[in-house]
């Protein structure tokens, strides 16, 4: 839930549809009484509409025929109404989707914690940019699988990069860690340690070809050179 006192600062997140369902409703109630917020939301919506224009793509011809034939059967609303017609999204949002994703720079090799932290600091910026690229690529491929032992893992892949994230995964047994593997043409390479906290973990990898499969297995702390247990999940783009 949002802090009610900072509803004012939510106008941008609202205009970007980046609020969850509860926050969105709270903010919309607030909008009724806040003239300056309404004005700001309107201005922001004009700005985001410009962002929309940038991703225009030729709509399929069959969309045109479908829409034109539907309007003949679709009753129009009259202008007089108390309820704004634009409020209609009924989709249910995933509850509590606010996962804390820990991004680690899981590139090649294993290395110790110190190495990883050093690497992390160095690459934090590039990593953020890389993740953004992958997650906003219109051609991204997304796969979700159940993890044996509980939880789910999702892989989003685009342009040689992959974001692997988990939700609801149990902690690795004491003295063990989750390790990622990159598999291609019968070869297996370590993808680094996947640190999972409260079920959530996330890693970003680059330099992948689209035909790789990713797997995660439970390994002794520090990692293994080859998987020593059956992977708890395996994800591929195809």
């Amino acid at each position: 839930m949002p802090d009610l006192h900072d509803l004012h600062t939510l106008s941008a997140a609202y205009a970007l549809d980046a609020l969850d369902d509860l926050e969105r409703r709270a903010f919309e109630r607030h909008l009724h009484d806040c003239e300056s917020c309404s004005l700001e939301v309107r201005e922001f919506s004009e700005a985001t509409a410009s962002l929309a224009a940038r991703v225009a793509e030729p709509a399929p011809a069959r969309l045109h025929s479908a829409v034109m034939s539907e309007i003949g059967r679709t009753r129009q609303l009259s202008s007089s109404s108390g309820r704004p017609a634009r409020r209609f999204g009924q989709g249910r949002l995933l509850a509590g989707a606010a996962a804390v994703l820990l991004v680690i720079a899981g590139v090649a090799g294993l290395g110790g914690t110190a190495w990883r932290e050093h690497r992390l600091a160095q690459e934090a910026r590039t990593t953020a940019a890389g993740i953004t690229r992958v997650l906003t690529d219109p051609d991204r491929i997304e796969t979700t699988r159940e993890v044996s032992g509980g939880g789910r893992a999702t892989m989003v892949m685009a342009d040689g990069g992959a974001v692997l994230s988990t939700r609801g995964v149990p902690d690795a047994p004491s003295g063990h860690e989750y390790q990622m593997w990159v598999m291609r043409d019968g070869t297996v390479q370590s993808g680094g340690i996947l640190s999972v906290q409260d079920g959530d973990g996330s890693a970003f990898m680059t330099g992948l070809s689209t035909d790789v499969r990713l797997a995660v297995s439970v390994e002794p702390a520090g990692g293994s050179e080859r998987p020593t247990t059956t992977p708890v999940v395996e994800l591929g783009a195809s």
């Binding site: 609020l19 969850d20 989707a97 606010a98 996962a99 804390v100 953020a128 953004t132 974001v163 996330s202």
Partner: peptide
């Protein structure tokens, strides 16, 4: 969502 963005970044 912004919570997702916060987690990812």
């Amino acid at each position: 969502s912004y919570a997702d963005v916060a987690g990812l970044l």
